[in-house]
């Protein structure tokens, strides 16, 4: 039954090749729409790969953000490019073959090197997991990834929230584009949205909650919430004018602001920056995650909609 032990490896090989094939097709397909769809498919397969690698968090994030939000953004952008861009002249859109060939050869050489290095790295090493395990008790949450994300390396996460906000500010600063069209949505879609949006709120809350001891967390939850916002938008909801001003902006900055505020406030209690006092880690983390979820959802929805309010 030796072949049975090889079965997982075979599956992995197939997955890996699928990844590469999808990536290749996504990058070279002459039709942009097809390219985007293939890219989304790539994201989904990547999700599977992450599951195979026991990285359920990343799988969730990959599907929600990598494939979902990115895919939605790409499709929305594509829709705004249509119809002129649907038929693209492949030859004009690529560098001349005389350039392509050396680039390809160079890349193959470089990547062979990189591949060899990766091969070299194939020495089992625990990384920091032992250290994380050793101090997980102090982290306030039982799930290592969340502990790293919101406590051990919370500073990164704070800035990551800032990156999202920054992207939105950037998009708004650029946007001459009007709002998404105000045409009446498909009734079926609208109905589904009305059904799904409230459920998504619950799912998002659940993801935040579950993140404390299992895969999940603010970013996955935020993307679910963002999707809810997008759906509501598609089903014809509009923010009233009074809400698109500072109330909306407040929601957008809430994540960073709460995170920063808590991170700074602890200094007043004799703690180091972003160092939660004993016993307060879990409530602090949950509060931060909730605020972050809200902001991430709002930011993602706003990014999708594109035009500034």
């Amino acid at each position: 039954m030796a072949w049975l032990s090889l079965l997982p490896l075979a599956i992995d090989l197939v997955l890996a090749l699928t990844l590469l094939w999808l990536a290749w097709r996504a990058l070279t397909s002459p039709d942009l729409f097809r390219a985007v769809v293939l890219f989304i498919a790539l994201g989904l397969v990547l999700g599977l790969v992450w599951v195979r690698l026991d990285a359920v968090d990343i799988a969730l994030a990959e599907i929600a953000l990598g494939a979902g939000v990115t895919g939605a953004l790409l499709l929305a952008a594509l829709a705004k490019l249509q119809p002129a861009e649907s038929q693209t002249d492949e030859v004009a859109m690529m560098a001349p073959i005389a350039l392509r060939l050396p680039i390809a050869l160079l890349l193959i050489a470089l990547l062979t090197g990189l591949g060899l290095v990766v091969w070299q790295l194939w020495v089992p090493a625990p990384g920091l997991s032992n250290l994380v395990d050793a101090r997980l008790d102090e982290a306030g949450v039982a799930y290592p990834v969340t502990a790293v994300l919101l406590n051990f390396r919370g500073y990164d996460t704070l800035l990551e929230l800032a990156v999202l906000l920054l992207a939105l500010i950037g998009v708004w600063s650029l946007s001459t584009a009007p709002h998404l069209g105000d045409e009446e949505p498909e009734p079926a879609l609208a109905a589904l949205s009305r059904l799904l949006a409230p459920l998504m709120i619950l799912v998002a809350a659940y993801l935040v909650w579950v993140g404390a001891y299992a895969p999940g967390g603010a970013f996955q939850a935020g993307s679910v919430l963002g999707a809810a916002g997008v759906l509501l938008r598609l089903s014809g909801w509009r923010l009233s004018l009074s809400a698109t001003g500072w109330p909306l902006r407040l929601v957008l900055v809430l994540g960073v602001a709460v995170f920063a505020f808590i991170g700074l406030a602890v200094i007043g209690f004799g703690q180091p920056l972003l160092g939660y006092p004993q016993g307060w880690a879990k409530p602090a983390i949950l509060t931060i995650e909730l605020a972050a979820t809200l902001s991430i959802g709002a930011i993602l929805a706003a990014l999708f909609i594109g035009g500034r309010p």
């Binding site: 879609l189 589904l192 799904l196």
Partner: peptide, 16 residues
């Protein structure tokens, strides 16, 4: 249930 709803809606959207 969710899948039912999604599938019905998606089916109709694609068909239309």
């Amino acid at each position: 249930l969710l899948l039912l709803a999604a599938s019905a809606t998606a089916g109709q959207l694609v068909a239309s």
